[in-house]
């Protein structure tokens, strides 16, 4: 797994990090990102598919039996945890662990919930700021106001453009990932069904074949018995 990560390009590494719910800072080195991804994957490995499914169902998302754990993980990191009402203490601890929220075994559940919600607000604030800039930019274009009066500085316009591009790119990538993952899961489920069907047919064929062989043995023994009976009768007659 580590070798695979090291072979990835910067863009791919950033994509993996985004899938695992954290943004990569501009000044962050590759090795730091890789170690963060590894740590996050270790935390994910400790959580079962059923636990992810349970949390996603709590968030009101539909989870089907054929959805793979990878897909559930990606969807989990897109869930907003600003409100955690209804989550069981066990699930709260899982969410905290998976978002690297600091807590220990003695931390009360309420405290953990508060920390998760605070962290979630911090993540969404970043998005809000980016979204605010986007909305401002669009409002300006729609209102057709004088560019000289309210035009943002050039740098800010660039940042807004970059945010838009990044947002669209991320949205597109997420939907494509979801679509492909769902299709792959469907194909996998279909292959599994086919394999089960083949296995069942093999079972039937094997039982039929064994029964056929045993029947041949039985007829051979019956023929031998017939010969033995003839032999006895012959001996009686010949005596």
């Amino acid at each position: 797994m580590a070798r695979e990560l090291e072979e990835l390009s910067d863009v791919e590494l950033r994509g993996v990090a985004e899938d695992l719910g954290f943004d990569v800072g501009r000044k962050e080195s590759r090795s730091d990102v890789i170690s963060r991804i590894r740590a996050r994957r270790l935390a994910i490995d400790e959580v079962s598919r059923e636990e992810f499914a349970r949390i996603l169902r709590w968030a009101g998302e539909e989870v089907k039996d054929f959805h793979a754990k990878d897909l559930l993980v990606r969807r989990f990191y897109r869930v907003n945890f600003r409100k955690t009402e209804g989550l069981s203490p066990e699930d709260l601890r899982i969410v905290a662990r998976l978002h690297a929220v600091d807590f220990d075994e003695d931390t009360p559940t309420e405290e953990i919930a508060e920390r998760i919600e605070t962290s979630a607000k911090r993540w969404t604030d970043v998005l809000k700021r980016a979204g605010g800039r986007v909305v401002g930019y669009i409002a300006k274009k729609v209102a057709g106001a004088d560019d000289d009066e309210i035009a943002p500085p050039e740098e800010e316009e660039k940042a807004v453009g970059a945010s838009l591009r990044k947002g669209f790119k991320a949205a597109l990538r997420f939907s494509m990932d979801d679509y492909i993952a769902e299709k792959l899961d469907e194909i996998e489920a279909r292959i599994d069904r086919k394999l089960d069907d083949l296995d069942r047919k093999m079972d039937e064929w094997r039982t039929r074949e064994v029964r056929h062989r045993l029947r041949i043995i039985k007829y051979t023994i019956i023929a031998t018995v017939v010969v033995a009976v003839i032999s006895i009768l012959y001996k009686l007659v010949a005596r």
Partner: peptide
Amino acid sequence: DVGWELTQIAFW
């Protein structure tokens, strides 16, 4: 699955 055949073989 093959119990009946085995029983018959044992009998014969």
